[in-house]
Design a protein around this nucleic acid. Structure first.
Lengths: 201, 201
DNA sequence: AGAATTTCTCCACTATAGGAAACAAATGTT
DNA sequence: AACATTTGTTTCCTATAGTGGAGAAATTCT
């Protein structure tokens, strides 16, 4: 970088005004039902100092904030979060267990994971293959791209156009070109649960 | 709690002397190859102030530290805790449980899955994050691309640059832009096992 | 309701954080 | 080697962080 770089004031990190920090601390303290006095004693700081911090009338030292986060069981990273970020992309999408978009038939369950994000390239989903059933019928499944699969539970046999069948059980994983005809057969008495991540090319 | 609680000095959070903070900041700055002057300009603080902070001759305000962590891509929670470790590379095809290429340290285990295939785009691996530990160090993990993660067992908190921390447990999944600074903290008593699938762009 | 008590805010003071500039050390150049 | 330049440290000063105590505002208790 050049030595005469000068960042416009409003884009500098100093834009943060500290109200968020103040509120977090007050909320955390009150959540514990503690008074300024008590909290101060435990953290080793004065009650007046804490009062000013919570009212955003001071710019506390890092050390003071560190003690408070410890004593109040606070989540530090949260304090560093910028409310109005710009630049770098930050997309994220998460799915709690069993909350994904479902698709199911008598023999097969398909739960899409993380499908709120529009511009993602991989498609993750969890499939449950009913005991003694197949995920492919008379024809091979075949689609341009690559797939990764991880067996969460149960046992199954992966069959494909160019290789011998592979017996997989919980903990095993497989990566293959999905343009190669393939399919799965559940081989045990229990249902097989598989995590797939598909990538189209 | 009673109002006359008095914590022995050596047990109080103030025991922290700040050397750790000083070193983290100097390390992060030097890792970027920046000078005090440059860093100060970008963060909006003076080079003398930064010098004093790095030499632990001052007790910087929280706001100053916040700006520094931001411009130096540092991982804030690290400043409140302790520990450390590293990254990945490789390929394959079909992996039986526990047969992948391993990489491990005292606090983190990393098993590459399916790494025989040369021309694959996704990189799947399983990581075990030891109880109460972190997968990220003083800086955010950040690399061009996208990542999908699925929690196999245990509990952890996913922290990232632009969002609030997410608490995840077995069965939960997450998809994110890996260009966004991120990291994980194992939050339960048991180790957390996570399946990751990474896609570079 | 008013009194007693607890909890917080405001003031006055001291210690120190943070910045500008002088200084020193290291590095590059001729 | 001497000079120039760049990077880090120290000094000095001002603004303010942090504190104890006084006062205000709630809160609780007769």
């Amino acid at each position: 970088m050049t030595e005469d770089t000068e960042i416009p004031a409003e884009n500098r990190p100093e834009a943060e005004d500290g109200r968020e920090l103040a509120k977090s601390i007050r909320d955390a303290r009150q959540a514990k039902g503690w008074t300024l006095e008590e909290t101060g004693k435990v953290a080793g700081i004065g009650r007046s100092t804490l009062s000013k911090i919570e009212n955003n009338q001071t710019r506390p030292s890092f050390e003071i904030v560190r003690r408070l986060t410890h004593v109040l069981d606070m989540n530090p990273p949260q304090l560093f979060m910028q409310s109005g970020h710009n630049g770098i992309s930050g997309r994220r999408d998460y799915t709690l267990r069993g909350q994904g978009e479902m698709r199911e038939t008598a023999t097969y369950t398909h739960e899409l994971l993380c499908n709120e994000l529009t511009s993602k390239h991989m498609v993750p989903y969890i499939a449950t293959i009913k005991a003694r059933d197949v995920s492919a019928y008379e024809t091979w499944i075949r689609h341009a791209g690559e797939e990764f699969m991880y067996v969460i539970s149960g046992e199954l046999t992966f069959i494909s156009e160019h290789y011998r069948p592979l017996d997989l059980k919980a903990g095993d994983s497989l990566y293959y070109d999905s343009g190669m005809g393939h399919g799965c057969i559940s081989t045990s008495k229990e249902d097989a649960v598989v995590l797939w991540v598909s990538l189209e090319v």
